[in-house]
Design a protein around this nucleic acid. Sequence first.
DNA 1: CGCCGTAAGTTTACGGTGTAAGATAGACAT
DNA 2: ATGTCTATCTTACACCGTAAACTTACGGCG
Lengths: 208, 208
Amino acid sequence: MAARKPLSRERILDTALAYVDEHGVEALSMRKLGQSLGYEAMSLYNHVANKDDLVDGLLDRVLAEMSPPAPDGGLPAIRASAIAAHEALQRHPWAAPLLMRGVRPGRMAYMEGLLACLRGSGLSAETTYHAYHIVDAHIFGFSLWEAGHSGSPPSHIDDMRGWFEQMVPVDRFPYLHEHGLQHLNDGPYLPVSAFEFALDLLLESLGK
Amino acid sequence: MAARKPLSRERILDTALAYVDEHGVEALSMRKLGQSLGYEAMSLYNHVANKDDLVDGLLDRVLAEMSPPAPDGGLPAIRASAIAAHEALQRHPWAAPLLMRGVRPGRMAYMEGLLACLRGSGLSAETTYHAYHIVDAHIFGFSLWEAGHSGSPPSHIDDMRGWFEQMVPVDRFPYLHEHGLQHLNDGPYLPVSAFEFALDLLLESLGK
DNA sequence: CGCCGTAAGTTTACGGTGTAAGATAGACAT
DNA sequence: ATGTCTATCTTACACCGTAAACTTACGGCG
C-alpha cells in the first residue's frame, strides 16, 4: 500500500489474472481491482479501454498458453495440443465460457491450426468439416463441463463426507451415492483421464 | 397493459422463460420482468423468494424437458435420452451453464438415472465411474460448446458473406475460410450430427 | 525562470442492478 | 367495526461500469 508502483497495462493484467484465477471472473470489478492495486477504479482506464478490453487481455494470456498443432503433425499433434489446451483451460476455469462468446485472434489461430492439421492428415474437406466440430467440441466442451463443476462442493467444508451424505442420501440416490464416494476416495480430480480416453476414441475413429 | 391478470409464480415463470429464451439470461432483470407483466419489480417477491429462486424455477422447467434413461433400457435408452437432453438444451441455450453451477433435484435425478442405466448395462462400478463422466461430459459439454457459439455471428447482419470475408480473410486463414463457407452453404446448424456421431462412438466403445 | 501541453490520477455523477424496509390498500373473518 | 392477512407500491441502499470534469506532476522550450 505504501510505496505504490506505477500503474501499467501489464501490472493491471497481472493482478487481474491472479484475482480471477482465484475468485472467478464474475467477482472481478474495476473498483476492487483498482483498490487491490492501491489506486482508484477510474485510474485503470488510463491503461485499459474498458472492462471488456481488460477481460480480452486476460483471455489473450490464456490463449497464449495453448498453441495450435503443427500443420504437418498429424493426429498425434492434434492429440498433444488438445491435451495442452485442456490443461490451460483447467488452470483458468473462468476462461472457457468467455472464449466461446467472442472470437479472439488467438482463438482463430487455434481454429486455423486445427483445421490445417486435419486437412494435412489426408482428410477431405467434408470429413474435416465434421471432424473439426467433433475435436473442438470435445476440447472446449469437456473443459466447459469441468469448469462448470468447479466450486460445486463449497470447497471450504470441514466435514465433506457428512455434507455429501446429507446432500445425496443413499436410499434415494444409491448410484449417485456410490459415484460420489468414488470421487471422495480418488481425490478431487479424476475426470482428466476421461478427457484423454474420449479424445483417443474420437481421434482413432478419424484415423481409420 | 390495461386489464392486468393477477400475478402468480406460474405466470412469472411463463413470462421469464419466454423472455430468457429470446434474450438470454443475462438480459433478465427483476425491473424489466415486472414491467413486462405490468407490475413493479418488488411485487414479484411476493411469489418468488429472490432472483436465484426465479432462475431455479426456470431451470426446473428445462430439466422437466429432459427425462433420464430407463434403468433397464441399456445403451439404447442412454442414447435416446442423451439426444432428448441435447435437444432441450438447444431449445434453452442459456440453461446449460447454470445447470452446471448448482445441482437441482431434477439434475440429480438425471445423474442417478444415467448411472443406474450404466450399471444396469452390466458395467462394473469402476467402469461406470469413468463411463458416466464420458457420457455426461459429452451431453452437457457439447451443449455448452454449442450454446457458446450462439450469437457469434451477430445474426442481424444483411451481408453475412461480406462480413465473413472481412472477418476471415482467405489469405491469412485459408482453412478457417473454407470451413466458414461450408457453414454458410449448409445453413446455420449442422453440428447436431457431430453430437450424435461422437455419442455413438462413445457408446459403442462402452458396449464392447 | 516562467509557461504550457500532456499524461495520470481523482472526484463526482448517472443509470443500471438486486433487494431490505416501510407504507398503503383491499379482502375477509370475527 | 375491528383486526389480520396478503398483495402491491414506494423509498432507499449498496454495488456495478464508466462519462465528464477536475487536480496534480512532469518534461520541453522560450
